[in-house]
């Protein structure tokens, strides 16, 4: 099976062969390609980037992301969870707004510190 690695912009073209329990991966320029291909064949995962609503006038939404990958089939569950979320305190870049989503060990963190700046 052929895959394109999405870990980095190199976009290595990977060839995956599955023989029973054994998964062989070729075509990767780095070890991350192999990890990606195996995950893709067993439990595909993705990081999610989106925004959450805030109560602050200067920033109606704040960008956030997962600080790791969650199972691919949980992406829309996470979107639904964040749909009901309204941020009402000023947080720093990197600060978590939700911890350990779906017991994945992954947090949702703010990716901008724009709420910390009170400058006009």
């Amino acid at each position: 099976m052929n895959l394109v690695c999405i870990v980095c912009p190199n976009g290595c073209r990977l060839t995956v062969t599955i023989d029973g329990e054994d998964i062989t991966v070729t075509g990767q320029k780095c070890p991350k390609g192999k990890t990606y291909a195996i995950a893709e064949m067993t439990e595909p995962k993705r990081s999610v980037t989106t925004t959450v609503r805030t109560v602050f006038e200067e920033a109606p939404v704040l960008p956030v992301r997962t600080n790791g990958e969650i199972p691919k089939d949980k992406i829309f569950d996470l979107m639904k969870l964040l749909d009901g979320f309204v941020l009402n305190k000023r947080i720093k870049r990197g600060e978590a707004i939700l911890r350990n989503v779906f017991d994945s060990g992954v947090d949702v963190i703010a990716t901008s510190g724009m709420l910390m700046k009170e400058e006009t």
Partner: peptide, 21 residues
């Protein structure tokens, strides 16, 4: 706000705002 920025520069997968900030 999507990620993939900074893999060369910071060896990390950052979102656009994180990279530029």
């Amino acid at each position: 706000i999507h990620d993939g920025f900074g893999l060369i520069r910071f060896k990390e997968k950052l979102s656009g705002p994180e990279y530029v900030e």
